[in-house]
Simulated assay, not measured.
Amino acid sequence: MSESAVPECREDPLADLPESVDPQVAGGFTLWFADRRWEWSPQVYRLHGYEPGAVEPSTELVLAHNHPDDRDLVAQLIERALTDREPFSGRHRIVDTDGCEHTVLVVANRILDADGEPVGTSGCYIDLTDTIDAAGQAAVSEVVPEIVEARAVIEQAKGILMRMYGISAEQAFKVLSWRSQETNTKLRAIAAQLIADLPQVPPPRPDVLTVFDHLLLTGHERVQPGKD
Rank of each mutant, 00 (worst) to 15 (best):
P202K: 09
P145I: 06
T129I: 00
E142I: 04
T131Q: 08
L17R: 06
L63F: 04
Q76A: 13
A189G: 14
Q43M: 14
V74E: 05
P57F: 10
Y50A: 00
E117W: 04
P202E: 14
A138N: 06
P52C: 13
R163T: 14
Y50C: 02
V25Y: 00
A150I: 02
Q156M: 07
R71Y: 11
R151G: 09
A26Y: 06
L194Q: 12
T121H: 05
M1F: 15
V62H: 03
V95A: 07
C124H: 08
D16N: 09
P145V: 06
W40S: 05
D70W: 00
P202T: 02
K174N: 14
P42G: 10
I154Q: 12
V6D: 02
P206A: 12
G53Q: 02
H48G: 05
S180C: 09
P68S: 05
S168P: 08
Q137M: 14
V153R: 15
A135R: 02
G226M: 12
I111L: 09
S122E: 14
G90K: 01
A5T: 06
G99R: 00
R151L: 15
D12Q: 03
G99P: 09
V153Q: 15
V95S: 04
D84N: 12
E3F: 12
A139T: 06
A169T: 08
D98T: 13
I132F: 02
